[in-house]
């Protein structure tokens, strides 16, 4: 009752202010987003159907509404398309497998060290993303200590390497996007009332059943948010593929980057960007529908 009353007072105190104020608050920020996010995307849609000027210089294009650009672009980089989504999915699942127990331990088993551990989860990410990726390259590379050790133990062959492989790219992405997974998971696990777990225990559920029927379903919002926050940047990433991969592990991001800068083929880069964005949005929408959470927005 007190809660309802406070809500009512709150509504009358704050939501009564209808007028112009909210629009004044929104205007500058939304103007920025409209000018530097929405307009460029619309412009990009225009670029994606252009064709080269006949007899013009490289980089000169004219609007001809050639939608076949999309088909050509897709056919030319089918493999990278597939790789982007496969690598991103693998990295997301790996990150979930690593981050869930970590977030669980911090939320339920860390006692008074909770805040400290939380800081420690984020702390590695204050060292530059690129420095850490290059560090992995050197740790797993020929001059690092891991490869000689594994060779000496005959776990890998004498000529086998760990870098410049799909495995290195996926593990690099897993590592780099781990905090995006851990933090939402922690936030939703932390909110679980420990009494619900005790109740499950009292009703003779063992630890595994409690986890499967109580803890995990209650942490679903965190799982959804974490997987999205990991999958989206991973699908568009090309830094890991560029540093840790080889020419056979390139992703869509690498193609867009090289079409833009090296080949100056703006229409193809634009068409690929659009397809990447559209497929991510479709996947995200389906995923949110299926898992039934709207808490993200």
């Amino acid at each position: 009752m007190a809660y309802l009353q406070s809500m009512a007072t709150r509504a009358s105190t704050f939501s009564g202010k209808k007028g112009r104020l909210p629009y004044l608050l929104l205007a500058p920020g939304l103007f920025w987003l409209f000018t530097f996010f929405v307009l460029p995307i619309i412009n990009l849609a225009g670029t994606s159907t252009q064709t080269p000027v006949v007899g013009g210089d490289t980089g000169q294009y004219v609007q001809t509404f050639r939608f076949a650009n999309y088909v050509d672009a897709f056919n030319a980089s089918r493999e990278q398309f597939a790789r982007s989504f496969i690598y991103a999915t693998l990295a997301t699942l790996l990150a979930l497998a690593i981050a869930y127990p970590l977030a669980y331990a911090i939320a339920f088993r860390s006692g008074k060290y909770k805040n400290l551990l939380l800081v420690l989860v984020i702390a590695p990410f204050f060292t530059s993303f690129l420095l850490r990726t290059v560090a992995w390259k050197q740790i797993l590379g020929e001059s690092g200590f891991v490869v000689p050790a594994l060779r000496a133990l005959h776990i890998i062959g004498a000529n086998a390497t760990l870098t410049a492989s799909a495995l290195a790219v996926v593990t690099g992405m897993t590592y780099n996007f781990l905090p995006f997974m851990t933090l939402p998971l922690y936030a939703s696990l932390e909110r679980i009332d420990p009494r619900t777990l005790e109740a499950s225990n009292d009703l003779y559920a063992n630890a595994f059943t409690t986890f499967r029927k109580v803890t995990f379903p209650l942490s679903m919002p965190g799982v959804v948010a974490g997987t999205l926050l990991t999958f989206i940047p991973a699908a568009g990433d090309y830094v890991n593929a560029a540093i840790l991969g080889n020419p056979n592990t390139t992703m869509l991001g690498n193609v867009i980057d090289s079409r833009f800068f090296r080949i100056v083929d703006y229409p193809t880069a634009a068409a690929l960007s659009f397809m990447l964005m559209a497929s991510i949005l479709v996947l995200v929408t389906l995923y949110i529908r299926k898992s039934g959470t709207d808490e993200l927005v």
Binding site: L26, L30, L33, F34, F36, F37, V38, L39, P40, I41, N43, L44, T47, L228, I232, P233, A235, G236, D237, Y238, L252, G253, I256, D257, F260, Y266, A269, A270, S273, F274, L276, M277, I280, L281, V284, L296, V297
Partner: peptide
Amino acid sequence: ATNLLIFLPMATPEVVLGASLLAM
């Protein structure tokens, strides 16, 4: 609509954000 406009840049891959802005 505002919520959507806030959410979309976070759901767009960086390479698309970067490329589209540069093109403009």
